[in-house]
C-alpha cells in the first residue's frame, strides 16, 4: 500500500506499508519520518539508526541518507518533506514582528540555514495527535492542499516545541560556560541516545555507547546525567520498558516473548522494573487496556 503526494507548494508526503524495501542514498529537504508498526533503519553518513513507533527522525535540508525496511511484519512508514520556501515562510512568521511581516511579507531568505540537531525525538503529545490526524486524512484520499498544509504548519509548531524541550533545555542543563561546547556535547549525547534506542534489545555496554558518542566513559556518564537527569543505563531500561508497553498494547506476544524481544535477561527483573516505573504489573497493564 502506497500513498505519495506532492503538494502545489512542493511539500511532499509519502506513506507506505511494506515488509522489504531499500531506498538508496539521496539528499533530503528538511523532513520528518515516522513508523507506526515495526521499524525501519537509516544510514546517515557513518551513523546507523533504527526508528521505532515511539520516535520520529528529523533530517536537515541537504542531508544525504539511505533507508531500509526488512521485517517479517508489515511496516507502515510516513515521511514528510518540507519545501525550503514553506520552512522559510514558517521561520519568518514565527520570528519576525507583525510590522516587519506586513512591510516585507515575502522576504524570508536564508532563514532555514539554521540547522537542527539531526536525530530522533519522542513521538508523543501534540505532534503524535496531529500526525495521526494527517495520516487519517490522507488514507481517506482527502485531496485538499489547504488542510494538509494546515497539518504540516502545525507539525512544524510541534517540532519546534519538542526541539526546544529536547535540545535547548537539555543543553542548558550542561555545566559548561561556552555555548558551542554545550551544543557539541549535547550533539554527542544524542548519538549515545540514538545508539541505545537503536540497539536497546542487544547486550550493549557503556564502552560501545561511549565510543559511538566520541566521549570517554566517565565524560559520557557525567554529561549524560547532567543533560537528561538519568544515567545511560536508566535510559536503556526506560526505552526497554516503553517498547514493552507498546508490545503489550499492540500485539498478542506472551510476556516471555516480550521479555526476550526487548532484551531483558529474565521475566522477574522485567516485571520488577515495569512495576517500579508504572505502579502496575505488565499483566495488569495489558488487562486494563482490554
Amino acid at each position: 500500500m502506497k500513498y505519495s503526494r506532492v503538494l502545489k507548494n512542493n511539500n511532499q508526503i509519502l506513506s507506505e506499508t511494506v515488509k522489504q524495501a531499500y531506498y538508496p542514498e539521496h539528499i533530503s529537504n528538511f523532513s520528518i519520518k515516522m513508523v507506526f508498526s515495526g521499524n525501519s533503519s537509516y544510514n546517515i553518513g557513518k551513523r546507523h539508526l533504527n526508528l521505532f513507533p515511539d520516535s520520529f527522525l528529523a533530517l536537515n535540508q541537504g542531508t544525504t541518507y539511505s533507508s531500509k525496511v526488512d521485517s517479517n511484519i508489515p511496516v507502515n512508514t510516513l515521511s514528510i518533506s518540507f519545501a525550503p520556501e514553506f520552512l522559510n515562510d514558517f521561520y519568518g512568521t514565527q520570528n519576525k514582528s507583525m510590522t516587519t511581516l506586513l512591510e516585507d511579507p515575502f522576504n524570508h531568505n536564508n532563514q532555514s540555514e539554521n540547522f537542527f540537531l539531526e536525530t530522533i525525538y519522542p513521538f508523543a503529545g501534540d505532534m503524535k495527535y496531529n500526525i495521526l490526524h494527517l495520516k487519517n486524512q490522507i488514507e481517506q484520499d482527502f485531496s485538499n492542499d489547504l488542510l494538509i498544509n494546515e497539518y504540516l504548519h502545525h507539525c512544524l509548531i510541534n517540532f519546534f516545541k519538542i526541539y526546544h524541550k529536547e535540545v535547548s533545555n537539555k543543553s542548558e542543563n550542561l555545566n559548561f560556560l561556552n555555548k558551542s561546547t554545550k551544543f557539541e556535547i549535547l550533539k554527542r549525547l544524542t548519538f549515545a541516545k540514538e545508539y541505545i534506542s537503536s540497539n536497546y534489545n542487544k547486550n550493549i555496554n557503556l564502552e560501545d555507547i561511549a565510543q559511538t558518542a566520541c566521549l570517554s566513559v566517565n565524560h559520557l556518564l557525567r554529561t549524560f546525567k547532567q543533560a537528561y537527569k538519568i544515567s545511560p543505563h536508566q535510559y536503556l531500561i526506560k526505552v526497554r520498558i516503553d517498547r514493552s508497553k507498546y508490545l503489550l498494547r499492540n500485539t498478542r506476544y506472551s510476556l516471555n516473548e516480550i521479555v526476550e524481544i526487548v532484551g531483558f535477561e529474565c521475566p522477574s527483573s522485567f516485571i520488577r522494573l515495569f512495576k517500579a516505573m508504572n505502579t502496575t504489573t505488565p499483566g495488569k497493564y495489558r488487562l486494563n487496556l482490554q
Binding site: 496531529n130 490526524h133 485538499n144 488542510l147 497539518y151
Partner: peptide
C-alpha cells in the same frame, strides 16, 4: 476529534 479538520 480533530480540531484542525473542523477549523478548516
Amino acid at each position: 476529534d480533530d480540531c484542525l479538520r473542523d477549523y478548516h
